[in-house]
Write a protein that binds this DNA or RNA. Structure first.
Length: 739
DNA sequence: GTGACCGGTTTTTTT
DNA sequence: AACCGGTCAC
């Protein structure tokens, strides 16, 4: 016990040992949030305040859930008499899946319902629109998908949606059709997992009471990322003063809320505090990660946001190195500079994997990769396709899904003609029409068809039936193996010229099945029912798409977006592309509170660094095939100059450098640079000025030359003055000086 | 059924 | 620039 609480700082200790009441922990970046969460659980269990089965811990990602469980298992060794066994630890979606499997009847679902990931959902919607003959120009599938998910996240079924115009009325009809289709096919999308569970708990009093009594303590990680429905879900299980229920222990950081665009509702923090009369709000502000200069910069930046719950990070470590800022002439120069700095850090003994290269958008990684690659520096890019999202894996899973549930039309459509077996569009159209008249799934409609479509489709049905029969007694990995062969997938990729990697991935799927089997702790009884286990495996595949990229272990520089860096930390962090329009992103200007979210993103980026932080931007940048001239990011101006060390750009052509002297410049705020309306002229006489250069105008302040035309006395330049607008000025008239 | 071509798009991402 | 999705010709 004393071990458990040793070395906690006073705020952490207070949070960990709070009495059983609702609590909100405002945990700043690097303040030991996970430690508080795990120690709180361990403390509650070890002091006998709660049985392990009375604990429910909710996270957003599988990774976080795994980490929580791993650290908890270390704190609650079996020998102590208590263990993490019996606790429910998982993601919102994983827990909902568990609840819906357990109460599938009450939730109106078959036991072996399957889960659609976003891609499956989109495919299902496209299929629906086609079947209903809906013009997908008027109702773009993606937009409809977004609409449906938004309604579900607001807790609304079609009948409850208020539609004031024809367009929305039609979308609501399609929403209803989509629901009918999902129900018919026994599939459930991500939002549905949450909404179904919510409705189950809300409507079924015995079940709700059961879980309210069972869970005494609910702990929520990354609470600032919860959406409306997740918050309401928590409210149903928690003690709101009427039905008993659990204590909520919510840990989060409003300053790190960066997922508004996918439904996260920071307001949940305030609502929680108010609706649950939270008396215990604890701020964890001591940071154990970064040096002082880095924290001071982060604090200074985030202070520009309004409507914060308020927090200020501090550290006992020293100020450390200044923050290095570099202005490059072009994106390539920026990338080269970063590459050279990395080389120098590595020479000084830093390992590559302790260095991160962050950017606002994925498109920026290309230039950076190019430089690293040509310099022979090992790097690893996060993002991109994940294991269970790969085409070949999706195909294999579709066969497996058909074994578990032949009515899954999404799976059916995906592989009915893959590998090709002469089932063309005509046959499928005939099948779809028939399925509509018989109101049954594609699979079960096949026997009703005659003629050529009937024959070829019957063969496919026979294939699936053979698969089901032949795998009925096989252990899961062998089942998968058999399906890969019998479906023809292996043969297909063997004959593909670039199929080697795909074949390896298919083999990896067998491994994944074996691992799943091992981790599931399936007993003899479960092993005797491979197809039930298969359904579990499929749910696992949908809920956990796998790591972004394997290849870990190697000592490589880490490249990723600022978003994906959340939760990680590195000795050295390079943040590139600090330009208006890029970061803050131009789209954020028109979004409600978009700029504040961008600033939180900046805050997240800065607080990733332990020792060294490098910020850089370029005067010109290739984007979408065109050169853009951007002003430097306002976020740079928000960092106190005393924390910063400006580095001279290598190019003598660059005149924008303010080396050494700190940042005494007029901040050019607001507005974004447009695309250059004209390519930079090579031999124009612009009186020593050039496109891309930063200049100062007596009245408009600082701006970037975006374009030029004419020469000599007729020369005109277009300048982006940020908030003062974009103007064409006669060089002979306007008094411009290099900034 | 496949490959060539055109046109529109292009922030961030988990489940 | 690069990628996706759709269409068209073979």
């Amino acid at each position: 016990m004393s071990d458990l609480l040793a070395n906690l700082n006073p705020e952490q200790l207070q949070a960990v040992t709070l009495p059983p009441q609702h609590a909100l922990i405002l945990a700043g970046a690097g303040s030991g949030k996970t430690r508080v969460l795990t120690t709180r659980i361990a403390w509650l269990v070890q002091t006998g305040q709660v049985d392990p089965q009375g604990v429910l811990a909710v996270t957003f990602t599988n990774k976080a859930a795994k980490e929580l469980l791993a650290r908890l298992s270390g704190m609650l060794p079996l020998s102590f008499g208590h263990s993490a066994r019996g606790m429910w630890i998982g993601t919102f979606h994983g827990l909902c899946n568990r609840l819906l499997r357990a109460h599938h009847r009450d939730a109106g679902l078959p036991q072996l319902f399957q889960i659609l990931d976003s891609g499956d959902q989109l495919a299902a919607i496209k299929r629906l629109l086609k079947a209903l003959n809906v013009d997908d120009e008027k109702f773009p599938p993606r937009e409809l998908q977004h609409f449906i998910n938004a309604q579900k996240e607001a807790g609304l079924r079609p009948h409850a949606v208020e539609a004031w115009d024809d367009y929305t009325r039609r979308r609501v009809e399609l929403f209803a059709e989509y629901e009918a289709q999902c129900q018919r096919e026994s599939v459930v999308d991500f939002a549905e997992l949450l909404l179904r569970t919510y409705e189950l708990l809300e409507r079924n009093e015995p079940i709700r009471r059961h879980y309210q009594r069972r869970f005494r303590h609910i702990l929520v990680d990354e609470f600032q990322d919860t959406n409306r429905l997740q918050y309401r879900w928590l409210k149903l299980l928690a003690d709101d003063g009427r039905e008993g229920g659990a204590c909520l222990f919510c840990v989060g950081d409003d300053d790190q809320s960066i997922y508004r665009f996918r439904g996260a509702e920071v307001g949940n923090m305030r609502d929680f505090e108010r609706e649950f009369h939270v008396a215990n709000v604890i701020r964890l502000e001591q940071n154990y990660r970064s040096h002082g200069n880095i924290l001071d910069a982060a604090n200074a930046i985030i202070r520009h946001n309004t409507a914060r719950l308020g927090k200020n990070l501090w550290t006992e470590r020293g100020a450390g190195e200044p923050i290095r800022v570099f202005e490059a002439y072009a994106d390539m120069d920026e990338a080269r500079w970063i590459m050279e700095e990395i080389q120098s850090l590595v020479r000084d003994g830093m390992s590559r994997s302790d260095i991160a290269l962050l950017y606002r958008s994925n498109a920026q990684s290309r230039v950076l990769e190019h430089q690293l690659f040509s310099a022979g520096i090992a790097y690893r890019v996060y993002g991109g396709l994940r294991f269970f999202e790969r085409q070949e894996i999706k195909h294999a899973l579709a066969y497996l899904r058909l074994i578990a549930n032949p009515d899954d039309d999404t799976a059916f459509s995906r592989v009915v003609n893959f590998p090709t077996r002469g089932i063309g569009a005509r046959s499928l159209e005939a099948l779809q029409d028939a399925a509509r008249t018989w109101n049954s799934s594609l699979y079960s409609t096949v026997p009703h068809l005659s003629g050529k479509p009937g024959t070829v489709l019957a063969q496919f049905v026979r294939l699936v039936e053979d698969l089901r029969r032949d795998t009925a007694r096989l252990p899961l990995p062998e089942l998968v193996d058999h399906v890969l062969d019998a479906s023809g997938l292996r043969d297909f990729y063997r004959s593909e010229k670039e199929g080697q990697e795909r074949l390896e991935n298919l083999d990896e799927l067998i491994n994944a099945a074996a691992n799943f089997l091992g981790e599931s702790g399936a007993d003899v009884e479960a092993l005797a029912q491979p197809h039930a286990l298969l359904a579990d495996f499929l749910a696992h595949a949908s809920l956990e798409a796998g790591d972004h990229q394997a290849d870990a272990g190697s000592d490589a520089v880490q490249l990723m977006t600022v978003h994906s860096s959340k939760g990680l930390e590195f000795d050295a962090v390079f943040l590139s592309g600090l330009e208006e329009g890029l970061f803050p992103h131009e789209n954020s200007a028109v979004e409600n509170e978009g700029l504040e979210e961008e600033r939180r993103l900046m805050y997240v980026a800065v607080t990733r660094a332990r020792e060294r932080l490098y910020l850089s931007f370029a005067q010109s940048r290739m984007l979408h095939g065109q050169t853009r001239y951007n002003l430097r990011s306002r976020f740079l101006e928000e960092i106190p100059e005393g924390l910063v060390k400006w580095l001279s750009p290598p190019s003598p052509r660059s005149m924008g450098a303010r080396s050494g002297a700190g940042m005494r410049v007029e901040p050019a705020r607001g507005g974004f640079a447009p695309r250059a309306s004209q390519a930079p002229a090579r031999s124009q006489d612009l009186g020593g000025l050039r496109v891309g250069q930063l200049v100062t105008h007596a009245k408009f302040g600082q701006g970037v030359i975006v374009a030029a035309e004419g020469s000599g006395a007729d020369a005109r330049v277009q300048i982006n003055f940020g908030s003062a607008g974009i103007k064409w000025l006669m060089l002979a008239v306007a008094k411009l000086s290099p900034a």
